[in-house]
Write a protein that binds this DNA or RNA. Structure first.
Lengths: 307, 307
DNA sequence: CATTCTTACGTACTGCGTAAGAATG
DNA sequence: CATTCTTACGCAGTACGTAAGAATG
């Protein structure tokens, strides 16, 4: 096990030239310094000193260790220096969501955040999954809610709800009411999300892997546009069930019983590990709470805007 | 004293939610984990966990500590991973010197480096002190030899020789041969190095501080130009004694016995702390060796070019 | 009352200091 | 022979494990 004491000793040995002087600097004995270095070498398995002369002569690798040791000790000082400094109160949260989220539980989330952090300035941003991920990687955004589950280890991802998509069309447009197969839809124009959207990509891959290729498709990243096209009878849409409940109840769209059902799309909240996570992690928890609540209630989009 | 064990425990507590699970992950007991955290808190003086509920709830500062802890543990892994990797052999050294050095002991240094590192590619660069310091800060150069002694703590500086400047003029140009004062030179045009050069700046400041202002001066950054002007009888030059020995012996320039003597200019070799220093630190030692040798021998510039 | 963190206490062990040993120049 | 790193050995303090206690919901 590497210890900071070992690295500190290494630093002063190099700085002062001998074990003796480093020991004096650290208020201990040469013996202790020597043993710290031996322990450092055995625990890392790296020859740090060139021992064929009895001198504190660094090897090339020891030199590289030294560089990293300096960085670690600098971090240690940073931790200690946190003691004094006051933390500026949380004031800004840049959150990124996809269009689907913006339609459904974003208003809920905003209300919940306002309750928990009255002084918080929210900067929501609606964009494609791809763009959101890039913004997060560039540290231009603090937390995003996107389709997908596995992310780089430099991020933390919290699973949210799964989004269920359904086949829908204008009532009466598709003749047979029961047990449709995917191939039965080949004669229609298929309306679905583009591949820049995470859900669209997820489902496109799933279908490709099973050899399902629709002859005519219209792909857009705008959900309202797709819904409008479907309601206008231009084709069959495969869209998230949750956000079009009002269109179903008004009989402007009907759900088609297609089998097999395509898989539902898992969403995750994702934030960086290398930033303070106090705000982002609680936001992620709030996201999970509000979107699970939503899945059960399935309220109309319009009603969600009220706090 | 902060230990890596403590930080590792902190990481897993946050990752897994409870002390219990962190203990299981680290093959120890909750008790040990609890004590590591208490010790971390007392040693840093920072409240890391919010203790008013019995939960592993980070405070804002604990959150900031976590970010730094992640970085430290990442560095630890980097150190361990050094074990396997082979170090690419040293092959390139970008060294920056001032004009004076280029004239005097740079050839010596190059020979010495060639002896010690036969496969080394040298990239010498001659520029003003200011430009060299900037290049070093931007990591465009590995080591520089410049006037000055105190530098930022992110650099290591090794003292080299002191450069002695002397007043010189064409023989017979200045009437009185003994005990000249600085004010006696006011009637002549003074030839000295510009303020972009470290030595020029150093001496200008020294003279300013003592109220010495020469009415007519010519300042250039080119030493040969100054020497040429002095030899041509255009004025009195204040220039490093070392590099014009041949002009003295050929009676083209004479040293003026001006008192008080201006201070000699200390030179240092400077290199970054945040890069492997194996090559740069030995280069600095070689520099000290060759330039001290030079000060005693005071050989002609032309003879120094031979290895 | 179950979960979860803290405290108490005895133990094992790691790291240290003293002092002697070995290697280098 | 002086300097400098390593080894040996006994000690002390630290960190740990078991087990009980306290606080929370």
């Amino acid at each position: 096990m590497i210890t900071l004491k070992q690295l500190e000793a290494l630093l002063w040995i190099v700085e002062l030239g001998t074990f003796e002087r480093a020991a004096a600097k650290l208020n201990t004995t040469q013996s202790a310094i020597s043993k710290r270095m031996l322990e450092l070498e055995t625990s890392t398995g790296i020859a740090i000193f060139d021992r064929h002369e009895r001198r504190a002569q660094l090897t090339d690798k020891g030199d590289q260790v030294l560089v990293l040791a300096r960085q670690m000790l600098a971090l240690q000082e940073q931790i200690v220096s946190l003691k004094g400094g006051e933390n500026p109160p949380l004031r800004r949260l840049r959150l990124g969501v996809t269009e689907l989220t913006a339609f459904t539980w974003l208003p809920h989330l905003v209300s919940a955040l306002r309750l928990n952090y009255p002084n918080l300035t929210l900067e929501p941003q609606v964009d494609s999954t791809q763009a959101l991920c890039e913004s997060l990687a560039e540290d231009k955004i603090d937390i995003i809610a996107v389709p997908g589950t596995s992310f780089d280890s430099t991020f933390t991802s919290v699973p949210l709800a799964k989004v269920t998509n359904v086949w829908m069309a204008r009532p009466g447009m598709v003749k047979r009411r029961h047990s449709l197969k995917l191939t039965d839809l080949y004669e229609y124009t298929i309306l679905m999300q583009g591949r820049r959207s995470g859900s669209g990509l997820f489902l496109s891959k799933w279908m490709e892997a099973r050899g399902v290729f629709f002859p005519r498709t219209i792909a857009t990243d705008s959900l309202p546009a797709l819904a409008g096209l479907a309601a206008a009878g231009l084709g069959v849409g495969y869209l998230p069930r949750q956000c079009f409940q009002p269109l179903f109840s008004k009989r402007m769209l009907a759900i088609l019983p297609v089998k097999p059902a395509l898989p539902s799309v898992p969403y995750s909240a994702v934030y960086r590990n290398d930033r303070p996570a106090a705000l982002t992690s609680t936001t992620a928890k709030l996201m999970r709470a509000v979107c699970n609540f939503d899945r059960e209630s399935a309220a109309e989009p319009s009603t969600l805007i009220k706090p």
